[in-house]
Amino acid sequence: MNWKRAAIAVLAAAPLIALFAYGFSRDPAEIPSPLPGHAAPEFTLAVFAPGEGPLMRPLGDTVRLGALVGKVVVVNFWASWCGPCRAEHAGLSETARQYVGKPVRFIGVLYNDGAAAASDWITQMGGQSYPAVMDLGSVTAIDYGVYGVPETYIVDASGRIAYKYVGPIPPSVLRQWIDSLLPNATATGMMPLAVVR
């Protein structure tokens, strides 16, 4: 047995084993979005579900993101066939109500779904406070680099995407992020970042 050769061979294997060990700390399904920090892609989409009360937008109206500069905008991609969307729906709707009167807007963008099925779903879920818009051909979803639903993007007052959340967004996270972007927020010093489920 030539121990010197043996030792060299073993050393050669070390990086490979280290690489595999490193691999365990990563989730291959988790792909960071390049969008946070960049200008939010513009869209103009037609409303198909009006929302309620003060947040209502009439049917057939269009929502243009560019017209909302100066406000924090929560853009939520969802679909009626999406299971996890049920989990976040009530929290989103309630949070939107809590920010009535503040410079915050919520928009639900329908992803690969039909207006009738989606409207039914909203009724089933007990209504939705903010309006939902139709994204034909998923052009806007692709512009936002959507992988699946639900995904939530938060656009700051300057029209820049500050945060992205993949999966059902917890209301606490949503509020914390919105507050951090509002002008009178206590400086949190938190850097915008993409948080993935």
């Binding site: 047995m1 121990w3 050769r5 043996a6 060299i8 050669a12």
Partner: peptide, 8 residues
């Protein structure tokens, strides 16, 4: 690797 290199 040890066995093969050591006995190569």
């Amino acid at each position: 690797l040890m066995l093969v290199a050591g006995n190569s």
